[in-house]
Amino acid sequence: MSFLKEVLRGIAIGVANIIPGVSGGTMMVSMGIYGDVIGAVTGMPKHFWKSVKFLLPYAIGMLIGIGGLSFAIGYFFLEFPFETAMLFIGLIFGGVPLLLPKIMGKRITFSETLLFVLFFGLVVWMQFWKQGTDVALNPGIKNSISLFVVGTVAAATMVIPGVSGSMLLMSLGYYTPIINRISGFLAALPALKWEELFACAAVLIPFGIGVVLGIFLVSKLVEYLLEKQERKTYFAIMGLVTSSPIAVLSGMNIVSIGFGQLLLGILLFIGGFFIANILGK
């Protein structure tokens, strides 16, 4: 049962990473596993098999979430954007009670308040980023290097709660091309269309290597901050997490939402809140 629960958590993280405005790091915080996952990633060089055993169900879940459920979630976000967004907001806020013990119990200082406000404002500021023109991912060393760098930076934002890696990819013009290569690879795999598989792999491999490196480097930084300044780090994380709904709802015409949509959205918010509590520790 524990393994299945961890796979389900991984699915939530994977789906969150491909939805613009939602962060996989936020999902990890909401489910109370952020520190444990960071520790397993940074501890891999010293405790390889222990880290692999811990991370394996999450990795399986993320692959299912990104590869299997991306089509369904993409459809629901296209056809029912508000209702789907409310489900994810419920998932996000369902984890806030897990964060409160990290910041309560002592008098709140000015620096802690400032960190909360600054990181809350960072997410709001990011909503003014414009989507870039989609880049042409032609084979070549130059594109491979660019994909590696973009993967590294995107992974950093995926690890940091509240900062959406997919939103960053959209602003750089890489989101749609990368998603198309993932879906193209999965579509070509059953029929073993080697030409299509190699063309997609030429894009996904350098991007994937960058993602792995980025996750490790940022996890090291977060681990250091949690060790040296845990309370202040969690105030910054709280600012990122509580501002996430602004990112999720960004660009939606809230005024045009009907009563039925609002009611369903509220129900999905409640459902997401309880799911986060069930999946949380």
Rank of each mutant, 00 (worst) to 15 (best):
L225I: 06
L4D: 05
M170C: 02
L114Q: 03
F48Q: 09
Y224N: 13
A12T: 15
F54T: 07
P97S: 13
L147P: 07
G271D: 12
F80H: 13
R9C: 07
G95D: 10
A201Y: 07
E112K: 03
A12P: 07
I182D: 08
A187G: 06
I60M: 02
L279Q: 12
I215N: 04
G272T: 12
L279T: 11
G271P: 06
T133Y: 01
N277D: 11
G132D: 12
M31W: 01
L137I: 14
I270P: 12
S51G: 05
V124G: 02
L263A: 15
T242D: 04
A12Y: 07
L249I: 00
F128S: 14
K50M: 10
W129K: 14
I160Q: 00
R9D: 09
K50Q: 11
A85G: 04
T113A: 15
L226S: 07
L197W: 00
F76W: 10
F116M: 12
A201M: 14
L91S: 13
S164Y: 02
V149M: 12
K281Q: 15
L221E: 04
I209E: 10
S244R: 01
V163Q: 01
T26A: 06
L169V: 04
S183V: 14
L172T: 05
F48H: 01
L55T: 05
N138I: 08
L56P: 03
Q131S: 04
S164W: 03
G21N: 10
L168C: 04
G94W: 08
M62F: 08
Q261L: 05
L137W: 00
L118C: 01
E112G: 09
V211W: 09
L91A: 15
S183D: 01
M86Y: 03
T152W: 00
S23K: 13
P139G: 09
G43A: 10
I237L: 09
L118F: 07
G208K: 05
G90Q: 12
F119P: 04
L118P: 10
L267F: 09
E223S: 14
F198Q: 08
T133R: 10
L226P: 06
I246V: 15
L197A: 10
I64R: 06
A72N: 03
K46D: 06
V37I: 15
L192T: 03
V135D: 09
I178G: 12
T242A: 08
G210Y: 05
A136M: 11
W129N: 10
F259E: 07
A59P: 00
S70W: 01
L168V: 05
G65H: 11
A199H: 03
E79Y: 13
S171L: 02
L264I: 14
S111Q: 08
E112T: 08
F120P: 12
E112F: 09
